[in-house]
Design a binder for these strands. Sequence first.
DNA 1: TTTCATGTAACTATATATGTTACGATTCGG
DNA 2: CCGAATCGTAACATATATAGTTACATGAAA
Lengths: 147, 147
Amino acid sequence: MKRDSRLSSVLHALLHMAEHDGPMTSEALGQCLGTNPVVVRRSMGLLREAGLVTAERGHAGGWRISADLAAVSLRRLHEALGEPAIFAIGNRNETPECLVEQSVNAALEGAFAEAEALLLERFADVTLADLAEDFARRHAQRRAAKE
Amino acid sequence: MKRDSRLSSVLHALLHMAEHDGPMTSEALGQCLGTNPVVVRRSMGLLREAGLVTAERGHAGGWRISADLAAVSLRRLHEALGEPAIFAIGNRNETPECLVEQSVNAALEGAFAEAEALLLERFADVTLADLAEDFARRHAQRRAAKE
DNA sequence: TTTCATGTAACTATATATGTTACGATTCGG
DNA sequence: CCGAATCGTAACATATATAGTTACATGAAA
């Protein structure tokens, strides 16, 4: 199964946008992420629909963050991306007749539900502002290490 | 991404085996699971390597559970299957140079690590014996409902 | 020795994310 | 107003992983 890396991607893009004055084009973001501008537009388009960024077309256009960094949690981004499936493991059959399979599904679903709840809780705790701060710290450390 | 349902499958198979006297063939298990005998052999082969089941070839052959039901947890089965990836979501790049991406990865990895730890803990808590008991309860309930 | 079963390799099918090409729609500058 | 820049989006290609299928060798029992 191929992993969905869109959350990672949009976070990377948003932080670059946060560090940058003025709008950034899909082309520029694509270079930051090492991918194609169309891929950037696809993900950013979902964030636009969620009201987190705005897009301007034409000359000097591009993407801008339109929300407070401290108000955008990883969870909100996950939702904006359409809440893709979190787990790569799952039940063979979601609505089995077989009682044996029902027991199996119930046990697995319980465990997955708990893990998912914890993950979403952690996602809710982390905002773009936190990540920007973490980045600033790493940046300062690298500069200090070079001296 | 397609979900890995092998854990669900082998649990289903093992419980049928636990309810059944004598060995069960891949053919019979394939019918329980609605799949092909070769698919059954592939997964069961991994459990055999982990010492959880034995296979007998030839006439009246098939698969048998060779461990105490109470000693086989979901976690042990997950390990026997080669500990497949749990999450369908992940980082775009595992070892980025970009400091921004490093911040993103660190935040995501922390959350995923916590969720994975919780999931594996829950998996460790549930054994085949627990599932067999749950099945027996469902079976009794269905019979009661029919009367 | 025939039959039934696992063991395994090789190939196909399917699903999904990602990447790419192409082009329409819109905005700005000259 | 024209043309370049940019998003918006459809259509298609590629990559990868799981699952399914076919084929056949190996081994055990009647």
